[in-house]
């Protein structure tokens, strides 16, 4: 399958890239690892006029401590994350999650920025031009109708990233650079939850780095998929828990992937968990609550009810893991 033709830019600075992007934002794409973008381009769901290669910009791939904060450049690869001594020591969970993305080569190529900004997925969208040819293009691919709900003007594509749930649970922020300078926003706010335009980036903005506050509490990531490699999650879960000094839970973050148009935080379940102790009854109630709170759509070969069920099961497993005195 050939790529469509495009103009290819190799900016030397982020400013240059921002200018190029802002000049024709709708018909431009940013190339980082390419593992998501090039597949979509081969499938002709994205046919950009210009491809802006961010890898030619120096010094965007780093992992460093700045005071207590960990900063990761957007072009750091997932493999950089899993092999970085600094991350292994301070945020072993991030190293772990990076090894759960795709497979080895995809981790060596794929970048953190690209992973966070990866396109939403849908069984009607992530298909070849031939496959999609039987129906008019879906709303996300430039048509009118969302084939998932058979309604116009909506897009229910699903966010399936692995890194975002954990980073949101760790309260990471992202620094973006645009035509009007830099701004920092919480990672959670990067996601618009609009399937058609899943990122809240403004015209010409580029994700530059991820900022992670000092670690506290414990974080787990459970990824549910049929095979233990290659696949995106059917559903996955990041659970972050901080004790309040007693046996009770002070703070809880529960964030799912692959069940909504962005990473999904189940706030009701979090509240239920906070200031409770982790007894079996709480675990049952919280898991059920979380499963109720999410609204997966039929965007993959897996049914929404199955995703919902597995979401509850994963959370239960994660919480049970915290019951053990020294969780993994």
């Amino acid at each position: 399958m050939r790529l469509p033709k495009f103009e290819y830019l190799e900016p030397k600075t982020l400013q240059e890239a921002v200018r190029a992007l802002a000049s024709d934002a709708k018909r431009s794409v940013l190339l980082a690892g390419g593992t998501d973008l090039l597949v979509n381009m081969k499938h002709r769901v994205i046919e950009p006029k210009q491809v802006i290669n961010l890898k030619t910009i120096p010094k965007l791939a780093y992992v460093k401590n700045v005071k207590d904060e960990l900063r990761i450049g957007a072009l750091a690869t997932l493999h950089d994350l899993s092999s970085s001594r600094v991350i292994q020591e301070r945020f072993p969970i991030l190293s772990h999650v990076a090894t759960k993305v795709g497979a080895y080569a995809l981790q060596a190529m794929g970048t953190l920025g690209g992973n966070l900004c990866q396109g939403n997925r849908c069984r009607f969208y992530n298909q070849s031009a031939f496959w999609r040819g039987a129906k008019p293009p879906c709303y996300k691919a430039g048509g009118k109708l969302c084939h998932v709900v058979r309604k116009p003007g909506e897009c229910h594509s699903t966010y399936c990233g692995d890194m975002a749930p954990v980073l949101i649970a760790l309260e990471a922020q992202v620094r973006v650079v645009g035509p009007n300078g830099e701004r920092v926003l919480s990672l959670s706010k990067l996601y618009s939850r609009d399937g058609k335009r899943p990122l809240s980036l403004r015209k010409g903005e580029i994700l530059k780095e991820v900022l992670i506050p000092p670690p506290s509490g414990k974080t787990l990531y459970l990824k549910w998929r049929r095979r233990e490699s290659i696949e995106f999650p059917i559903v996955s879960l990041a659970l972050h828990i901080e004790k309040d000094g007693t046996e009770k839970i002070g703070k809880a973050r529960i964030i799912f992937s692959a069940v909504g148009s962005g990473p999904v935080e189940t706030i009701g379940a979090e509240e239920m968990l906070e200031s409770s102790s982790l007894d079996n009854r709480t675990i049952e109630r919280v898991s059920n609550q979380a499963a109720k709170e999410i609204s997966p759509m039929r965007t993959s070969i897996y049914s929404p009810s199955y995703k919902r069920r597995m979401a509850g099961i994963l959370l239960r497993q994660a919480l049970e893991n915290f019951q053990i005195p020294n969780p993994k």
Binding site: Y8, G34, L38, A105
Partner: peptide, 19 residues
Amino acid sequence: CTVLIEGKPYLSCLTLAAD
């Protein structure tokens, strides 16, 4: 289609030659 680029495994089907 795996090749090594600077010693790291790359999928050459998802890599632009120009890159």
